[in-house]
Simulated scan of single mutants.
Amino acid sequence: MRKSIAAAALVLAAGCAAATGVAAQDKPARLKIGFVYIGSVGDFGWTYQHDQARKAIVKEFGDRVETTALENVGAGPAAERSIEQLGRAGNRLIFSTSFDYMDSTIKVAKKYPGVRFELATGTRREANVATYSGRFYEGRTIEGAIAARMSKKGVIGYIGSFPVPEVISDINATMLAARKINPDIKIRIVWVDSWFNPGKEADAAKALLDQGADVIMQSTDSAAAMQVANERGALAFAQNADMIKFGPKAQLTGIVADWTPYYLARVRAALANEWTSGATWGGLKDRMILMAPYTNMPEDVKKLAAETEAGIIDGSIKPFACPIRDQDGKEIECKGGDHLDDSQVLGMNFFVQGINDRIPGK
């Protein structure tokens, strides 16, 4: 078990339920746990990884728990209905696994103060709502360095889901790392306005390749882009899970989200009536995110990737080291001393210098 992130989660869970406003209750014979998924467990990406953690809960706790998972739940009214459905059905711990569910989760949580909610990538908390996410931008720093070395055309294609801070920070981390190796590198972005839409993702990958990109990245959840890259002799990075079987000739590496240690710790806390609200933001050091094996690249690029990963873990490499300028040349205030602080990354709403595309709506 990855002790570091589990320990971090347990620190967040320390204390009594009464301290958070969640009513103390007798230890249940069986804890009903609900999951709301933005996509399908067959996406082999984001939702797949969350469901692997759900399965780990069942394996670890056996008949002490009962789980229910709702797939392909859209944002807004659909999410609110699904989350409330789980609350009415007696689930006392509910994992809302998308940023898009934030408003709905907060709204339902206020109706069910005795239910504990876990909101993935969310930024709003309540006494009975905790948030958790991974520092995915750390993995993008590694990928940016690899892409700059592996791209023959000097063009990275990026499939964007939505222009939210998490995605913007990922794109920025990619560009900052890539420009250190190739100052002339370019990133071209196609927004698909979806987290999971294999058809749109495939079309976006094709469009980017047609525009001159030879390395594909994504913030979307399916393996469609990886498959397109593999078919067209391009290179690509996996998203949320190891997608090597979809792109044996294309995959360079990928960010793998490992939710299992956190989920086990939070269920354990709920069973012991020791669950409390809090925020967890784990990265490579905590092993909440991992890098898939470095493949389809020369040994010197593997060495660069491994050294970058090690530097992020030991703190010698900071993905958002200052000075940083936005795409219009304005220097960004450096609130973390020699790097942007967490609040700046969590609220990032600008593109860095070198990115020509504009953030939609700005």
Rank of each mutant, 00 (worst) to 15 (best):
S316C: 02
R81D: 01
I317T: 11
H339E: 15
V167H: 06
I171M: 06
N230Y: 12
S133A: 14
Y158G: 02
A9M: 14
I255F: 06
D314M: 05
T105R: 07
A270H: 03
L235K: 15
P28H: 07
V108P: 09
T20R: 02
E138F: 03
A272G: 09
L176Q: 06
G329L: 02
A120C: 07
Q344W: 08
K186P: 02
R116T: 00
R140H: 11
R325D: 07
I359V: 12
A69C: 09
I57N: 03
P183H: 07
T121Q: 08
F351L: 15
P319H: 06
G154E: 02
P293N: 13
V11S: 11
P198W: 09
A257I: 05
G199V: 13
D100E: 13
G212R: 13
A269M: 05
A89M: 06
M243N: 11
D63Y: 01
H50D: 01
G283D: 05
A6K: 14
A17W: 01
V58Y: 03
F246P: 04
E66T: 04
A223C: 06
R179Q: 14
I33S: 08
E333V: 15
K303H: 11
A269D: 00
A18P: 01
Y137N: 01
T141P: 01
A250T: 00
R135L: 11
A234H: 03
K302N: 08
G199N: 14
M291V: 04
N91V: 03
R140W: 10
A14N: 13
L271F: 09
P165N: 09
A147T: 05
P165T: 03
E80N: 07
T47G: 07
E126N: 12
K55D: 11
V155N: 10
D242P: 03
A120D: 07
T174A: 03
I359Q: 05
Q49W: 05
